[in-house]
Simulated scan of single mutants.
Amino acid sequence: MREQISESLKEALKARDTRRTATLRLINSAIKDKDIAIRQENRGPATNEEILVILQKMVKQREESFAIYAQAGRTDLATIEKEEIDILNEFLPKGLTDEEVDAAIAAAIKMVGAEGPKDMGKVIGQLKIDYPGRIDFGKASGKVKAALSNG
């Protein structure tokens, strides 16, 4: 994933695409910050899963900013946030549709043998293993809770 981001940065520099260059530099900076934090734990550089989490966090921050700017009528700033979201999303795996999330939850419940709300952590844990970066766990946790309460 690092190589893909670095290659995209080189291409953006050659193309003189300032928005893309700035966004990719922000990504690299966030990854380096994570590498430094990890080094203090005596581990190697950030894994692809950790980079995925960084990218998801960056997207979420920009989505919140986009909503605020759009609500305030600042279309110029909202446009910038939207462009950055699009660039970040290029490096994230495609998210699951609602139907796919429902099917994944049902499969995870069956796999871990969950029987009620007390097993919610097991189900979420299984989903994180099977679908890293492809499910919005804020939304999915409500669906898991509902599925376990009804089951």
Rank of each mutant, 00 (worst) to 15 (best):
G95P: 15
D76Y: 07
K82P: 00
E50I: 02
E64P: 00
A78E: 07
T79R: 08
D98Q: 14
E100L: 03
I85T: 00
L55Q: 06
I68D: 11
A67Y: 05
I87A: 02
R62D: 08
V59R: 03
Q71C: 07
V53A: 13
F66M: 13
K60L: 13
G73I: 02
G73R: 09
S65C: 04
T75W: 05
A78N: 07
I87M: 01
T97R: 08
L92F: 10
L77H: 10
V53P: 00
L52V: 01
M58I: 10
I54N: 06
F66S: 09
I87V: 11
A104V: 01
F91S: 07
I68F: 11
N89Y: 01
K57L: 13
K60Q: 13
A103Q: 13
I105F: 02
I105P: 02
A104L: 03
A70C: 01
D102L: 07
G95D: 14
E64V: 09
V53N: 08
A70I: 00
I85Y: 03
L52F: 06
T75N: 09
E100M: 07
T79L: 03
D102G: 08
V101P: 03
E84S: 10
V101M: 04
D86Y: 08
E100W: 07
I80W: 06
E90G: 00
A67N: 11
E81K: 08
I85H: 02
L88V: 06
Q61M: 14
L52W: 03
D102N: 12
L92I: 04
E99D: 14
D102P: 01
V53E: 14
E84C: 08
T79W: 00
K57G: 14
S65H: 09
I51S: 03
G73S: 07
P93W: 10
I51C: 02
E84G: 00
A104Q: 04
I51G: 02
A104D: 03
A78Y: 05
K82T: 00
E84V: 00
A67E: 13
T75A: 07
A103V: 05
K60S: 14
F66I: 05
Y69N: 15
E64F: 10
I85R: 02
E81L: 01
G73A: 11
E50Q: 11
E50N: 01
